[in-house]
């Protein structure tokens, strides 16, 4: 923990165009290469992992990447597809072939309708940024009950924590079911008091995403919430 902190204190904020490294390192996300040198393409924090240098953005829109689990909102319906808002720059159609049910032509509305929330996976992104999404995987489904709200997509990694540690703490201490979409949409279900505590915790994470000792803060917040009982 201590060692971790001292490394975090060396965090450096870079702006687009800042020189990050020469050709001795590998260019990671949030960078571009010109004349063999690596430059930042985003406003964010410089991050070095082994031999790769990248930039973790401070803010910004959600950019879909293949394999992302996201929470989408149905905004329109066609005869053989639904139009889903996953907060990406482009609208994302969900074709009937990509859902776990057999849907006859023109019967899309019997399964999901405008205003429904769905757990989805991004299965492909082409060079123009158009996305292909699917519900055909274990655990992907229509969401019912609970509450949904948005956080900045750049803060999602903090909400999830290192290999899911943060989200696990919240699940354990509130007893809620929580899904965090990579697009910054979060769904929580449980009893009302616990939902409100979980929402409060996530709002705190979003506000203090770049501060240290966040895990401890969240733990004490949830431990000391009055509704936790014994």
């Amino acid at each position: 923990m201590q060692r971790n902190d001292s490394r975090e204190s060396a965090r450096e904020i870079v702006v687009p165009g800042d020189l990050l490294a020469d050709r001795s390192m590998k260019a990671g996300p949030g960078t571009y290469v010109e004349n063999g040198n690596i430059y930042a393409s985003l406003l964010g924090i410089k991050s070095i992992r082994s031999n790769t240098i990248g930039v973790v953005p401070l803010s910004g829109q959600y950019v879909p990447i293949r394999g992302d689990m996201v929470i989408g909102k149905i905004v329109d319906m066609g005869a053989s597809n639904w139009l889903v808002d996953i907060k990406a720059p482009h609208p994302s159609p969900l074709h009937v072939n990509e859902v776990p049910w057999r849907v006859e032509f023109g019967e899309t509305g019997r399964f999901m309708t405008v205003g429904d929330l769905v757990l989805l996976k991004v299965v492909g992104v082409d060079e123009l940024g158009r996305v292909q999404i699917s519900m055909k995987e274990h655990g992907l489904r229509k969401l019912a009950g609970g509450v949904v709200f948005d956080v900045a997509p750049a803060k999602v990694p903090r909400v999830i924590g290192r290999s899911g540690s943060m989200i696990q703490i919240m699940k354990n201490l509130t007893g809620c079911r929580i899904h965090v979409g990579q697009n910054g949409r979060i769904w929580i279900d449980g009893d009302l008091d616990n939902i409100l505590r979980a929402v409060e915790a996530i709002k705190l994470i979003e506000k203090e995403a770049h501060s240290r000792g966040l895990t401890e803060k969240i733990k004490s917040l949830l431990d000391h919430s009055p509704s936790k009982g014994e």
Binding site: K73, I74, V75, D85, V114, G115, D116, L117, L143, A144, G145, G146, V147, V148, F149, L192, L196
Partner: peptide
């Protein structure tokens, strides 16, 4: 803007308990 149905339900449910 299409609002998610369950978000709407949540707002109404909270109001019935006197919370915004």
């Amino acid at each position: 803007d299409v609002m998610a149905d369950l978000k709407r339900d949540h707002i109404v449910k909270l109001l019935s308990k006197g919370i915004r």
